[in-house]
C-alpha cells in the first residue's frame, strides 16, 4: 500500500435496520479502504451485508436504516455529514453503481437512451442538442450492437446481458472515479458473465477507475481483484491482497470459503462446504464473533471480549480470536 490517502475509506461503520420483527444488526464495525485505481473484491455468502454496505456508502439506504457509528470519507469528503444536495453531486458522477438484477434495475417504461440522458443532464454540461449523441456514444462504449437503434429501446426489449451493458453505460456515463459493481453477473449465463466481467475490468483499467466488485464467487474475485475483503454476517473478517489471501488465509471462514471454491486443480468431491447458517441478525445477544457457532477453531473467549484485529503484514488484516497460524517459510 502506498502512503497516499485512500479514495474511499469506511471506518468502524455500524448499521441497523429497525423492523417490525426487531432490530437487524446488519453491519458492525466495518472498515474498508479503496485506493485510486484499485480493484477490491468484497466476498461473502448471501445476507452478509455486502449490498447494504454499498448502499450505505452512497447513502441510498431506505428509511428503516439507522447508522449507529463510524465514518465514511470519499476523496476527502465526509459522506455521513454531507448534505443531500452534495451527495447528489457525488452519486453518478464520482461514485457509480451497477446492480444485482439488471432487468429490474432499469426504469421499465423509459427508453434506455433517455435514462442515460437523465444522468448526463444531471452531471455534465452537455448541450441539449448533443445529449442524444453522447448517450449513443455511451452505449457504443459498452459494445452494444447497433446503439442508434437501441437508444430508443425499452428494457423489456433487451436481453439480461444487454440490460447489464446498459447499466454499465449508465454508470460510466460521467467517468466516475469509483465504480461499485454489486454482483454484476448473477442471473446471467456463463458466457455473458465472462463478457460482462471483461468489459467492466477493461473499462476500469482504461480510465484507471477504482472498482469495488461485490460477489459471492471467490474464483471470480480472485481473477479480477487486487485485494479481497471477506465479509461474514455483517463483519469484515479478513482483508488481504488476493494472492496473499489464497496462500495464507488467516480466518477460518476464509479458509473454508477457499476450500469450497471449485477450481480446476481441486476434485469436486473434496470441496468442503461450510456447515451451519448465518446467525439471525435480529438477535440482541449476538456473540462477539458471529462465526463462532460454525467454527471448528472456536475457543472459549470467542463469545466474550472485543473482537481483536490483527495485522499480519501490511495490508493483511484479520478479525479473529484464534487465527490460523503458518510456520515461517
Amino acid at each position: 500500500m502506498n502512503a497516499e490517502a485512500p479514495l474511499l475509506s469506511v471506518k468502524d461503520y455500524s448499521l441497523e435496520f429497525r423492523t417490525r420483527s426487531g432490530t437487524v444488526h446488519a453491519l458492525e464495525d466495518v472498515s474498508i479502504e479503496v485506493a485510486r485505481g484499485e480493484t477490491v473484491g468484497i466476498v461473502g455468502e448471501s445476507g452478509s451485508g455486502k449490498s447494504v454496505l454499498s448502499f450505505g456508502i452512497l447513502r441510498i439506504l431506505d428509511a428503516a436504516a439507522d447508522v449507529r457509528a463510524g465514518a465514511i470519507s470519499f476523496a476527502g469528503m465526509d459522506m455521513l455529514a454531507a448534505k443531500e444536495s452534495a451527495l447528489q453531486q457525488v452519486r453518478g458522477r464520482e461514485i457509480a453503481m451497477i446492480f444485482q438484477n439488471p432487468r429490474t434495475a432499469l426504469n421499465p417504461i423509459r427508453k434506455i437512451g433517455r435514462q442515460i440522458e437523465d444522468v448526463l443532464r444531471t452531471h455534465t454540461s452537455t448541450l441539449q442538442a448533443d445529449l442524444k449523441k453522447k448517450a449513443i456514444e455511451c452505449l457504443a462504449q459498452v459494445r452494444i450492437t447497433d446503439p442508434e437503434r437501441r437508444y430508443s429501446a425499452y428494457p423489456f426489449e433487451l436481453s439480461g446481458g444487454q440490460c447489464q451493458r446498459v447499466m454499465i453505460a449508465l454508470a460510466l456515463a460521467c467517468n466516475p472515479s469509483l465504480l461499485i459493481a454489486d454482483e454484476p453477473t448473477t442471473g446471467l449465463d456463463v458466457t455473458t458473465q465472462a463478457a460482462i466481467m471483461e468489459l467492466v475490468s477493461e473499462l476500469a483499467r482504461e480510465r484507471s477507475m477504482a472498482t469495488i466488485l461485490i460477489t459471492h464467487d471467490l474464483a471470480l474475485a480472485s481473477e479480477y481483484c487486487d485485494r479481497i475483503v471477506v465479509m461474514h454476517a455483517g463483519h469484515v473478517v479478513e482483508s488481504a491482497p488476493t494472492a496473499r489471501l489464497f496462500e495464507r488465509p488467516r480466518h477460518p471462514y476464509t479458509a473454508r470459503l477457499i476450500a469450497s471454491t471449485p477450481s480446476p486443480e481441486v476434485e469436486i468431491d473434496s470441496l468442503a462446504s461450510i456447515p451451519g447458517n448465518l446467525p439471525d441478525l435480529r438477535r440482541n445477544d449476538l456473540p462477539k464473533c458471529r462465526f463462532h457457532a460454525r467454527c471448528d477453531r472456536a475457543v472459549a473467549q470467542c463469545t466474550v471480549g472485543p473482537l481483536p484485529e490483527a495485522t499480519f503484514e501490511p495490508g493483511h488484516r484479520v478479525r479473529c480470536f484464534n487465527p490460523l497460524a503458518y510456520t515461517a517459510p
Binding site: L58, Q88, T104, L106, M167, L170
Partner: peptide
Amino acid sequence: LSSDFIRTARASGLSGTK
C-alpha cells in the same frame, strides 16, 4: 418507491423531484 430502478435513479444522483 421500493423498487430497484428507483434505487438506480437515486444512485445515479438524479434529483429528488426527478
